[in-house]
Structure formats: C-alpha cells, structure tokens
Computed example of a mutant assay.
Amino acid sequence: MKKTFSIISFSILLTFSFLSINSCNTREDTVSCFPNSPISVNLNLNLAAYNNLNYVGQPVYIDEQQSGTRGLIVVRVQDSPASFKVYDRNAPHLCPESNTTLEIKDNISIVCPKDNATWILITGQPTAVSSVPPKTYFWNYDAATKNLNIYN
C-alpha cells in the first residue's frame, strides 16, 4: 500500500511540475512563453518612413532586423521633451500563434486579433480582456539629430 501511494504521489508531482514548466502562466510583464529576442534599432526621424514619429499619437510599425520576432509599434507620446512608447507586437498575454500579432486600430488603440484584447496606444494601459500591458522597450532620443535608438 505504501509503495503504491508513493508511486501515485510521485506521478502527480511529476505531472504538475511538467505542466507548470510548459504552461503560459503570467509573470511580471508577459506570459512565460513570450519570445526573447534582441532589440537594437536606430531610426532617423528625418526619413519619410519615420516622419509620423515627429508627431504625438502617430504610430509606426517597425519591421527591421533586430526588431523582435514580429516587429515593434512605436509612437510619440509627448512633444517636449520628446517621449516615446515602444511596444513589442507579440501579444503579452498569449503564447505566440499566427493570429496573436498586435495591430493598431484607429490610431488610438492596440488590438490582439485572436481575442480582441485592447490597450490604449499612448499609455499601453489594458482596456479589455487582458490585464497585462504590452511589453515595452528602452529608447534614447537625440533631438539634435532626430535619431531614436531602441534597445532591450
């Protein structure tokens, strides 16, 4: 009887350990299965492709080398001093799938097409479905040259 109980206990413990390692439980800022990739992007806001970033509330998709697994959303949130938000396009609350790439809607919100989770574009604050904000990255802006460096 003791041996059977030990085997059953061990099996249950092993099963729960496996589930907790491979599940998408939330951690501080994203699900545990969120991809970790290097972010190192330099944007010259003098170029036409990034002109929107010279204005508050005008987002730009960044899909260059070293801009994450699915790219970034960048938006200027303040003029003086210049301030930006840089969001990863992977949904922060779901394990990555083909339909979990975040999209901008009406230049006021970010939406996950899979479950319609939404966030405020300027702040990243969740408004529906998810309580986790989009993953953000560090940035440094040189106003004299209009160069925006994004990194993690």
Rank of each mutant, 00 (worst) to 15 (best):
M1H: 08
M1P: 10
K2H: 12
K3Q: 13
K3R: 11
T4C: 10
I7K: 06
I7V: 15
S9V: 10
S11Q: 09
S11C: 15
T15N: 13
S17E: 09
S17P: 03
S20Q: 07
N22V: 13
N22F: 12
N22E: 05
S23E: 09
C24T: 05
T26W: 06
R27N: 15
R27D: 11
E28H: 00
C33A: 11
S37A: 14
P38Q: 12
S40F: 08
V41N: 03
V41F: 03
L43E: 01
A49H: 09
A49L: 12
A49C: 13
N51E: 15
N51S: 11
N54G: 08
Y55S: 09
Q58A: 14
P59S: 07
P59E: 02
Y61F: 14
I62M: 11
D63R: 09
E64F: 05
E64Y: 13
Q66M: 13
Q66R: 10
S67W: 05
G68R: 02
G68H: 08
G68W: 00
G68P: 07
T69R: 15
R70Y: 15
G71T: 07
R76W: 01
R76Y: 14
D79P: 12
P81M: 05
S83T: 04
D88I: 11
D88R: 10
R89C: 03
R89N: 08
R89G: 01
N90T: 15
A91T: 03
P92A: 10
L94E: 01
E97D: 15
S98K: 12
S98V: 14
S98H: 09
N99A: 06
T100W: 00
T101I: 12
T101C: 10
K105E: 14
K105S: 08
D106L: 12
D106V: 06
D106S: 15
S109Q: 12
I110H: 01
C112R: 01
P113E: 06
K114G: 06
K114C: 04
N116I: 05
N116S: 14
T118C: 09
T118Q: 14
I120A: 01
L121N: 06
I122L: 09
T123D: 02
T123H: 02
G124F: 08
Q125L: 07
P126I: 01
V132R: 00
P133C: 03
P133A: 10
P133R: 03
K135D: 02
F138R: 07
F138N: 14
W139T: 00
Y141M: 08
T145N: 13
K146V: 03
K146H: 07
I150P: 04
Y151Q: 01
Y151R: 05
